[in-house]
Write a protein that binds this DNA or RNA. Structure first.
Lengths: 221, 221
DNA sequence: CGCATTTTTGATTCTTATCAAGACGAGTGG
DNA sequence: CCACTCGTCTTGATAAGAATCAAAAATGCG
């Protein structure tokens, strides 16, 4: 059972572990920058993100950190979905979640694991073989897909705007870069008019086609 | 059903797709460097590697390639275990496989997917945050674990020898490096007496403790 | 309105990639 | 049996991309 239920409450840690007591589904709001402990020894509980943003990450003994995945609304998070002993998760903004009973939602869990694996494989290609600008372009497209403001206009083409819940440092840890390199790439994309932003956390994609070409490795800028 | 059954046969491609006809389990040997097509639209078939070595990889339009995972004896390979549309697989040596019925082995498939995800996450840490020598050390330990000669002596400490089915170029594509860098790192490890090899494809780990420290990021060589 | 944090930008360094030869080994055919 | 060739591996010299070091500028918060 979640150890945190009040709206807007902000205990330092949210535990996921429902040994026997299980009155699900249950909603909960978690403040920004709260660690989520994945202690589901029973594997009986998982979370669905209703709204907000969660980063799943691992770290090396000396502090080097890699963000494995960024989870937006709809994505699942639970014991089965990550290496419990080595992965950690944090909210990057105020996040609403609901607990789901894995026994009733077996298919959803299976799909979520498969999606996780698929994303991990795509990310391996990014980390192993893409240049810094390609990585940043890929990340922006992924984030746009997960966090785009659902406006009246179709998302497919034209401008897409989304809130970037990640700081430059978070992006760097996701993309295997440094925050300075991320900042330079974002500035370069802005100068090239592929994206636009006035405040650093509100990004608009202004040329999706070019951004996709860059992300796929077809462009050399 | 496998389109290849004879021992030692070497058709250019091995198809995995058993629509209705299914007399499993069935063994098969595949020559080295044969592509394995993962066409399991039905998701009803998977392979278990009995002996040998398979590389699962993805590539970018311009030829950049990343090996997502190296699969040794016991590992499973099938439609559920990779993005069918974007992943490819090749044998790196003569490889024996058996088909397994996924409906009868649901738990195995689930475990295999979870192992795949866990390994992908560990690999993301390697690709995103480890230095070249750390990557090579990590790879050698993983390969030793999957391919170690089962000798009388316990594997835990002392010398471990294994056949490196990967070329330097394969290692580079797995580790997000170039073949020259891999070769230099291997030479450096040899000079430091952490490993030994006379022929380039037969590696002996001579100081497992130091290699593990390096792989974990505790050493600075 | 300061103060702390994040972001941007610049100068320089360092790791790894790229380019370039050789060395080695396995297989082939004379 | 011995050149010859092809593919892989090793090693060296140089270049490039990203990291590091450093300092402002912008932003948000109390």
């Amino acid at each position: 059972m979640l150890n945190q239920t009040a709206l807007g409450a902000c205990a330092p840690v949210l535990l996921i572990d429902s040994p026997a007591e299980r009155r699900l589904p249950h909603q909960s709001r978690i403040a920004a920058h709260m660690p989520i402990l994945l202690l589901g020894a029973s594997r009986a509980t998982a979370l669905r993100i209703i709204d907000g943003c969660v980063a799943l990450y691992r770290e090396l003994a000396d502090g080097r950190r890699i963000i494995l995945d960024i989870l937006g609304p709809g994505r699942l998070l639970g014991a089965d979905l990550a290496d419990i002993h080595q992965c950690k998760a944090v909210t990057l903004t105020l996040t609403s979640v609901e607990t789901i009973d894995t026994e009733r939602a077996l298919a959803s869990i299976g799909n979520a694991i498969r999606e996780m694996l698929l994303r991990a494989q795509a990310h391996a290609l990014l980390l192993g073989r893409k240049t810094a600008p390609e990585r940043v372009a890929t990340a922006l497209l992924d984030l746009a897909h997960q966090f785009a403001r659902k406006s009246g206009a179709p998302l497919a083409r034209g401008r897409t705007t989304f809130t970037l819940y990640l700081t430059r440092a978070d992006l760097a840890d996701w993309l295997g870069l440094t925050l300075e390199t991320v900042s330079r790439c974002l500035s370069a994309l802005k100068r090239s008019r592929l994206i636009a932003f006035d405040r650093p956390e509100l990004i608009t994609i202004t040329d999706r086609t070019a951004l996709e070409a860059l992300a796929a490795g077809h462009l050399h800028a």
